[in-house]
Design a protein around this nucleic acid. Structure first.
Length: 554
RNA sequence: GCGCCUGUAGCUCAGCUGGAUAGAGCAUCAGACUACGAAUCUGAGGGCCGUAGGUUCGAAUCCUACCAGGCGCGCCA
C-alpha cells in the first residue's frame, strides 16, 4: 500500500515538472508514513515539504499541484487533504481495506512475505561461542536474534544461510584440555595447583570422569602435551554436542558449523597474508606482521603475525570472511556481543582490502543481558563457573517465554531478564497476551463449528458489514503487516515484530470485549468469523517468524 | 586520556532514518464475568525526551560542547 502511494506521488511530481508547475527538481525518496493521529488519514506524505526548499515554492502550493496531478488508476483513494505546513493526507476507500481479508485468506501462511531481498544470498553468523563450556544466558539473546533475523530475511525474499563459527584453533582450546587433565588427575587422587586460565565448571569434572570410566588411568603416564591435545578434542566434541542440543531445544538450528581449523588447512591463512602483503596491505617491522587497518579508519594498525610466529585471531578472521565471500554470499551479517564493538573497524578494513564494500558486512551488536530474579540481580561469574546456562533458563521459563523476552528490546539496548516474571503466567508477561489472542480466536472458530456453522470463505461474506472502528483498525493493522516486515528487514530490527504483535493482539482483545463475533445475525457473524480468522493467520505468521508457538488452547 | 553505545512517565521500554497534540506495558487508583476463554477489557492520573547551544518551515530524532551510566582501548578470543 505504501509502495503504491509512493509510486503515484512520484508520477505526479514528474507530471508537474513536465507541465512546468514545478522546476526541474531531483525526485526525492518518497516517504509515506502512518500518522500518529488517525484524524490525519490512513497514510501521510511529506513530499511537498521536502520539495519546497529545492523548488523554492510554498509547500502547500506544491502539495496542491501534486494532488491535482495524481492519477489514481486503481481507484483506492477516498480522499486527499492538504494539511498543516504541506502534508498530503490520504484516506483510502473502505473496500481497499476490506480486500485485505481476501489476500490474507488466499495467501494464508505466505501472507506478509514480500520480495525486497531479490533472492540475494545472505549469510547470518551468530552464537559462535567457543566450545569450552555450555551456552549461558548471554549467548541465548544472540541466538534468538540471529535465528529470528534469519526467518525474517527468508520471509522477505533473501536466501539465508545460518552459520556457527567454531573457534577451535586457539589457546582457549588448549586451556580446555588442561582443565580436563587437571580434574582427571584430581579424580585419580593427585593433589595439585589449579592451573591458570582454566575452566572450573562442573561439566569439566563430568568429562574427566567419563574418560576415567571409559579409558581408566592410562593418561597419567602419557606425554602431557599429547594428552592435553587429546583431551582437547574429546572435551570440545562433547561440549559442542551439548551446545547443539541446547540450541535445538531452544528452537535454533544452523545450516553450517564452520571450524576455524579449516582455515589453516594447506597453509590457507599464511598464504592469504602473503598475498595481502604483496598488495601492500600488510607490512613487517622485523619481528611481527601488521595489517594497515588505519587506511580504513581504524585507530591503529593491528598485528596479524605475532613475535612468536603465531597468527592472531584477527588473521584467521580475515581468512574466514574471505572464505564466506568466496562461497558466493552477497551480504554477510555477523552478530556479536556488544563488548566486541572495538573489533568492528579492523574487520571492515579487512574486507575492504579484500575488495568488498564496507556495507557488504553488517554487524549487529547485541547488548548484555542482566539476569534478575524477582527484581534482584543474579550474580554470575564465568571464571568460577557460576553462570546461569541457557539450559537452566529453558527448563525454568520455557522456550516461548524465553524467546519472546529476548525480542522485546532493540538489540543494542541492555535487557533486563527477570526469571520470575518470565515464568509467570500473568499479565506481566507479554508473550501470553499475544498467544492468548490466538487461542481465543481458535476457540471462537471451534465453538462456531461445534454449533454446526460452516466456516465461511471470503466469497461468502459481505465485507461491507465490517464497519466498527475496531474492525477497520484490525483490517488496517493487517494491511500494515507486510510493510512492517519490510521495514524490519531493511533495518535488521527484529524487535519491531513483537511490538507489532502486541498492538494487533491489543486491538483484537478490545474488539472481542465489545463485540460478539457469533451472533443471531447470520451474515454479520459470517463476516466477523472471516475477519477473526484472518487475524489468527497474521498472528500465527508473525509468531512463526519469532519461533514462538501459536497455541490453539492454553 | 581516547573511542563506541545508552540517557524518553515511578519502573521497563517503543518512537517507522526530520513531521502534526511524544506513545505502550508494568505499577497506582476507579470500574466490567448468569457473555464466543477475565492469561481479557474500559477509564484516570503521571513528561523541561540528561543539560546548554546550533542547523530549518519543523528536532526525542541531525551537529557541537558538557553531565551521568555501560563497554572497549592485547602480539587474548
Amino acid at each position: 500500500m505504501k509502495n503504491k502511494l509512493a509510486l503515484m506521488i512520484a508520477d505526479a511530481v514528474t507530471v508537474c515538472t513536465k507541465k512546468g508547475l514545478l522546476p526541474d527538481v531531483q525526485l526525492p525518496h518518497i516517504e509515506i508514513e502512518v500518522p500518529a493521529n488517525p484524524e490525519h488519514g490512513d497514510y501521510a506524505s511529506n513530499t511537498a515539504m521536502i520539495l519546497a526548499s529545492q523548488a523554492k515554492q510554498n509547500p502547500r502550493k506544491i502539495a496542491q499541484a501534486i494532488q491535482e496531478n495524481l492519477a489514481d488508476s486503481e481507484g483506492i483513494i477516498g480522499q486527499i487533504q492538504i494539511a498543516g505546513p504541506g502534508f498530503l493526507n490520504f484516506r483510502l476507500k473502505d473496500n481497499v481495506w476490506q480486500k485485505i481479508l481476501r489476500e490474507v485468506l488466499d495467501q494464508k501462511n505466505r501472507y506478509g512475505c514480500v520480495n525486497v531481498g531479490g533472492e540475494k544470498k545472505v549469510q547470518v553468523e551468530f552464537v559462535s561461542a567457543n566450545p569450552t563450556g555450555p551456552l549461558h544466558i548471554g549467548h541465548a539473546r544472540g541466538a534468538v536474534v540471529g535465528d529470528v533475523l534469519s526467518n525474517l530475511l527468508t520471509a522477505t525474499g533473501y536466501q539465508v544461510s545460518k552459520e556457527y563459527y567454531i573457534n577451535d584453533a586457539g589457546n582457549q582450546m588448549n586451556n580446555l584440555g588442561k582443565s580436563v587433565l587437571y580434574r582427571y588427575r584430581e579424580l585419580l587422587g593427585e593433589k595439585m595447583e589449579f592451573p591458570e586460565n582454566c575452566y572450573r565448571g562442573d561439566y569439566i569434572r563430568d568429562i574427566s570422569s567419563d574418560i576415567i570410566r571409559e579409558q581408566g588411568n592410562r593418561y597419567l603416564t602419557e606425554n602431557e602435551d599429547e594428552t592435553i591435545s587429546c583431551f582437547n578434542a574429546i572435551a570440545g566434541g562433547v561440549i559442542l554436542e551439548g551446545i547443539k542440543q541446547d540450541l535445538q531445544d531452544f528452537g535454533v538450528t544452523f545450516d553450517c558449523y564452520f571450524s576455524e581449523k579449516e582455515l589453516y588447512r594447506e597453509n590457507g591463512v599464511r598464504n592469504l597474508l602473503v598475498s595481502l602483503q604483496k598488495q601492500g596491505f600488510i607490512y613487517s617491522d622485523g619481528e611481527t606482521l601488521w595489517f594497515k587497518t588505519t587506511n580504513y579508519g581504524d585507530e591503529k594498525d593491528r598485528v596479524v603475525i605475532r613475535k612468536n610466529g603465531d597468527p592472531t585471531y584477527f588473521a584467521a578472521d580475515i581468512a574466514y570472511h574471505r572464505n564466506k565471500f568466496a562461497r558466493g554470499f552477497d551480504l554477510l551479517i555477523d552478530i556479536w556481543g556488544a563488548d566486541h564493538h572495538g573489533y568492528m573497524p579492523r574487520l571492515w578494513a579487512a574486507i575492504q582490502a579484500l575488495g568488498h564494500k564496507k556495507d557488504d558486512l553488517k554487524i549487529i551488536l547485541v547488548q548484555l543481558v542482566n539476569l534478575l530474579r524477582a527484581g534482584e540481580p543474579v550474580a554470575m561469574s564465568t571464571r568460577s563457573g557460576e553462570f546461569v546456562t541457557l539450559r537452566e533458563v529453558l527448563d525454568e521459563v520455557g522456550r516461548d517465554a524465553a524467546r519472546y523476552n529476548f525480542l522485546m528490546r532493540r538489540s543494542d539496548s541492555h535487557l533486563d531478564f527477570d526469571l520470575d516474571v518470565a515464568k509467570k503466567q500473568s499479565n506481566e508477561n507479554p508473550v501470553y497476551y499475544v498467544q492468548y489472542a490466538h487461542a481465543r480466536i481458535c476457540s471462537i472458530l471451534r465453538m462456531a463449528t461445534e454449533r454446526g456453522m460452516k466456516l465461511p470463505s471470503y466469497g461468502d461474506i459481505d465485507p461491507a458489514l465490517l464497519v466498527q472502528p475496531d474492525e477497520k483498525n484490525l483490517l488496517k493493522m493487517m494491511a500494515r503487516y507486510p510493510e512492517m516486515l519490510e521495514g524490519a528487514a531493511r533495518t535488521l530490527e527484529v524487535h519491531r515484530i513483537t511490538f507489532y504483535l502486541n498492538e494487533l493482539a491489543g486491538i483484537f482483545h478490545g474488539y472481542y470485549n465489545k463485540n460478539k463475533v457469533v451472533s443471531e445475525e447470520a451474515s454479520l457473524s459470517a463476516a466477523r468469523l472471516v475477519l477473526v480468522d484472518a487475524v489468527r493467520i497474521v498472528l500465527s505468521n508473525a509468531l512463526a517468524i519469532l519461533g514462538v508457538s501459536a497455541p490453539e488452547k492454553m
